[in-house]
Design a protein around this nucleic acid. Structure first.
Lengths: 169, 169
DNA sequence: CTAAGACTGTTAATATGTTTACAATAATGT
DNA sequence: ACATTATTGTAAACATATTAACAGTCTTAG
């Protein structure tokens, strides 16, 4: 996404003129927080991409497989899957096609509703996930090992607060 | 990206068995931190997408325009622009084409190197940026207004620490 | 029961990114 | 001077996402 936001532009933009007891400092901190959030996310994407690739996965594929894995034998319709993944129905069509080509999912007709397909994991996909999930868990733990327990708690609380604040932006 | 990581899977995976004085708690906190980071980023993407759209921009377009805006009249070659934006050369070709269609950039031949184009902002783009940048600054400030000054400082420090730790993952 | 409306999956057009391969041009070492 | 090497922009193939429009299929109000 918007890799770097914009830094060091406050002075050009005349923000200095409206400076009143620390207002400019606050704005600068806001910008720095956004820049740091962006570059940290970029770095996270990089390491997770490599991690997924070691198992022939990607974030999109993992996102689909984990929903199906947690659902069980009945599977999900494409529409349901899209809602859980927070992506559009149209996107699911292609994603499922690619997973089908890799023999990771199968699509079965639903006798009670001719509009829909029920998507299920193959045995191969279940085995893949059984191998991947513990590794994934370890990986997330390793990624967060820069933090001690207290720092993790503070980090989580701040992220929750930030996300909550976005509702009113 | 990988919208949700995986939560509540520790018990199924037998992590409980290796629990030793809080190990499982630490792993759980790592997962929660990653989940919270992901969903907060998703929420940020949403509000920023809308913010960019109000000015006919997107994160990719803004990313290109801000580099050119900060460079001045000589402009950048496509290759230089790609390096600053941290995207591939191939991606720049299409991005510049779209910006050219919108009359936001022009590509001029470089007399001293026949391989390259020099990409520059149009007057229209400069006017757009002059209007957008103060609004962008305000917007980032608004997004971060959930935090007081101290929280911003802590948030920045934690993100820096996390990013630094990723170098050794 | 039927007409109206809602929902499903697909398609097409588009945006954004990648890798790989290529031809044109530049730079360099001997 | 010339052969090798490096760099540049483009193109093709692909992955991932969106919105809009469509044709079937269900549901529901009357």
């Amino acid at each position: 996404m918007f890799t770097i936001m914009l830094i060091c532009l406050q002075s050009r933009l005349g923000v200095r003129k409206i400076q009143k007891n620390g207002d400019a400092l606050d704005r600068n901190l806001s910008t720095r927080a956004m820049v740091e959030m962006t570059s940290t996310w970029d770095a996270l994407e990089d390491v997770f991409s490599m991690h997924f690739a070691r198992y022939g996965l990607s974030s999109a594929k993992f996102n689909a497989l984990i929903r199906l894995y947690m659902t069980g034998d009945r599977g999900l319709t494409q529409s349901e899957l899209g809602k859980k993944m927070l992506v559009s129905r149209a996107n699911i069509t292609g994603l499922i096609e690619r997973l089908e080509k890799e023999d990771l999912v199968v699509r079965g007709a639903d006798p009670s509703d001719k509009r829909v397909f029920r998507v299920c994991l193959t045995d191969r996909a279940v085995m893949l996930m059984n191998a991947f999930l513990p590794a994934h868990n370890n990986f997330m733990h390793k990624v967060m090992s820069a933090f001690d327990r207290h720092e993790k708690e503070v980090f989580i609380a701040l992220l929750e607060k930030l996300k909550k604040g976005l509702e009113s932006v």
